[in-house]
């Protein structure tokens, strides 16, 4: 059976290629959503408050910095910085996630029941549909990224990963950067590009 056992470097090279092919595939998913946005909204956008989206965008981009610090740290066998970097990344990612859910979507409790949409409703025609659809698909990826980071954090706590062997960390890091990159395309498409259309119709 010796012929089957490959060296770890060979397997990591394959893993890396597989990971990037996965990103190529995902690009078509997010690209499809962007096409839907331009097909349905054209050169308009709903007139929405600007501060919260800008704020959570900054939070998400900052989280990528700490993800990178964590990856560099484990490559230098600096376990403490590594663990701390992961926690900060997950925390900032969670802030972004909550920001979308609470401030963007507007989940609030009214009369003991959850109510959705303080400024734009998912059923508000095509504007609500695309906004909720795109932020929702992205938030789902952010949530999966947070879960994966916490798994990596837990494995790191158990002493897994080393300077030589940390493919799991590398994969998590590029996945997180990738989610960030998607938001860099989504944010302007949803909030900046096009003529602002006010609520209430004509």
């Amino acid at each position: 059976m010796s012929a089957i056992v490959e060296s770890p470097q060979v397997q990591v090279r394959r893993n890396r290629m597989g990971m990037w092919l996965f990103f190529v595939s995902e690009a078509f998913l997010f690209g499809g959503l962007l096409i839907a946005r331009f097909f349905l909204w054209g050169d308009t956008r709903p007139d929405l408050p600007q501060v919260v989206p800008l704020g959570i965008t900054a939070v998400l981009l900052t989280s990528s910095f700490f993800m990178n610090r964590a990856e560099v740290a484990i490559a230098n066998d600096d376990r403490k910085t590594f663990q701390r970097g992961l926690l900060i990344t997950a925390f900032l990612g969670f802030i972004f996630f909550l920001g979308v859910l609470i401030f963007e979507w507007g989940w609030t409790i009214e009369d003991g029941a959850f109510v959705l949409g303080n400024h734009i409703h998912p059923t508000s025609g095509v504007y609500g549909a695309v906004l909720y659809g795109m932020t929702g698909m992205h938030a789902l990826h952010v949530l999966s990224g947070i879960v994966i980071i916490m798994i990596i954090w837990n494995l790191g706590r158990k002493g897994k990963f080393s300077a030589e062997d940390h493919w799991g960390v590398e994969a998590t890091a590029i996945y997180w950067h990738y989610i960030d990159l998607i938001w860099i395309f989504f944010y302007p498409a949803l909030y900046l590009i096009g003529t602002a259309v006010p609520a209430g119709g004509h």
Partner: peptide
Amino acid sequence: SSQLWEGGG
């Protein structure tokens, strides 16, 4: 009406 945007799919 504050949540209403005209425009169908």
